[in-house]
Design a protein around this nucleic acid. Sequence first.
DNA 1: GCCAACGTTGGC
DNA 2: GCCAACGTTGGC
Length: 154
Amino acid sequence: MKSEAECFSYDDLATALDKTTCWDGVRNFEARNMMRDLMKKGDLVLYYHSKGNPPGVAGVAKIVRDGYPDSTAFDKKDRHFDAKSDPAKPTWYMVDVKAVKKFKNFVSINDLRSHPLLQNMALFKRNRLSVTAVTPEEFDEVCNLGDGHTTKAK
DNA sequence: GCCAACGTTGGC
DNA sequence: GCCAACGTTGGC
């Protein structure tokens, strides 16, 4: 899962109440589908800083709540308001994410790209998607780079 | 249903 | 700040 480093970094998540936040504001159907249908409580995710200096994976987080309607879509004052999302039949969904472990070594985009096992990550193919799939092999390898050992993927 | 225009994202 | 990529919108 990606967040702009300036906007909401891994450290922001780790210092948030209960180290948890709702992943609101995603307005892309593919990312929506993943949060609504595919991501389940207990799943681990890599936390990626986009627009960082450098961009890269800062740590591991965990889904602590299955997909549920994104209430910011119904709030006229919210920048993610969407008049087309009907509360009775919501267009947009979000999950709750909790910080698990900050990497000792930040894994930069360059580290990912230059690693033989990680060159095909969906992150690179779908650069602009805010949520992209990671294979168990990729997940383990990124944790290995970040922490020197593997964190068990689901 | 096509496709050009537009807005946004993200790496640099 | 620039620019390429790409999802979305809207006219036809």
